[in-house]
Design a protein around this nucleic acid. Structure first.
Lengths: 176, 176
DNA sequence: TCGCACATGTAACGCGTTACATGATTAC
DNA sequence: GTAATCATGTAACGCGTTACATGTGCGA
């Protein structure tokens, strides 16, 4: 009925890189797939539970130090098969809900200075983001050069950088 | 607790252009703000009801032809004030969930041909989109040149075009 | 007369966020 | 000793999609 849940694929994908705990996955998604994918911990832990039940992942090792264990999850053959099945399907259109652009679109209803502030904030944010992306790129190039994932990581990172630069280009022209 | 609803602002904004029916708003959002904002009719009609209750909009005229009326809504002073209040607030970060990029990121798990297909589909889609955007731009330039909204419409449309072109540029380089 | 665009709505479902709860470990 | 980070989870809430229901007007 509603949209199919994609959290599971973000998790299964992460586990193709190496086994991770829920916390690791959370950070991985935030720090690595951040430019194009987000998840909240309120989704990750329940999703892990479901994936366990479906035997798409297994709890590799409970590194119990004290009462609260650190659960490390590992992909199963079933899990990899499901991920592959999803990967080959055409991607759905991204649902766009860009608040900044909506505000700019109806900008005639506020003073021009307000719009300039919006644009200035965006410029600052994009400049910071671009620097971050470029440092991630350097990091991948120097630390993961021979990893088979690296090719695809750089592909998506290039995409993010292109869009970042496009936004900055647009902002340059936007003063007119 | 959860995210504040932004559907109302998309509707209030649309009504700053001219009075519209629910159906008009639906089409307007799909066809005009489509590049950066989406709403489903399952949100629009309930939202209109709420906005009426809060006296942020009024039902201007019930153009009853037959049993099913065509209700035309109009912004009130209260509605415009609320919209303005929202417009001046800094925009929240866009929540990114780009399915295509997620699939590409974990591309090592499928055959390279699959990835090439994803990229080819994206190229085709972006080319079509770019043509559409450019024709919308021509339309605005020729039909709405002197409208005070047009400046802001072109601003956001330029943005969409820049990103479209950035995506195509990236796709060109992606074959390597 | 058939299909499409116009037109308004409702209900089920579940996704996802936010906030909260709890506790361990490390570094200063 | 205390703050930050590591670490795992739950519950409330409501947003948003999807599918459904219903009916009108017009053009081929």
């Amino acid at each position: 009925m509603s949209k199919p849940a994609k959290t599971q694929y973000a998790i299964l994908g992460a586990l193709t890189v190496f086994p991770m705990s829920g916390y690791d996955i959370k950070k991985w998604i935030r720090d690595v797939t951040g430019p194009f994918w987000a998840e909240s911990s309120g989704r990750i832990y329940p999703a892990l539970k479901q994936l366990m039940q479906q035997k798409l992942i297994v709890c590799d090792a409970t590194q119990g130090r004290g009462k609260r264990p650190r659960k490390v999850y590992k992909l199963t053959a079933r899990g990899l098969a499901l991920l592959r099945k999803w990967l080959i399907l055409p991607a759905h259109d991204e649902v766009l809900r860009n608040e900044l652009k909506l505000k700019l679109f109806y900008g005639k209803n506020v003073a021009p200075e307000i719009i300039e502030q919006h644009l200035a904030r965006q410029k600052e944010r994009m400049e910071k983001t671009l620097v971050r992306y470029q440092s991630i790129m350097e990091h991948i190039k120097s630390h993961h050069k021979n990893q088979i994932d690296a090719k695809y990581w750089l592909l998506t990172l290039h995409n993010a950088i292109h869009h970042c630069q496009a936004e900055l280009e647009w902002l340059k022209g936007a003063k007119a």
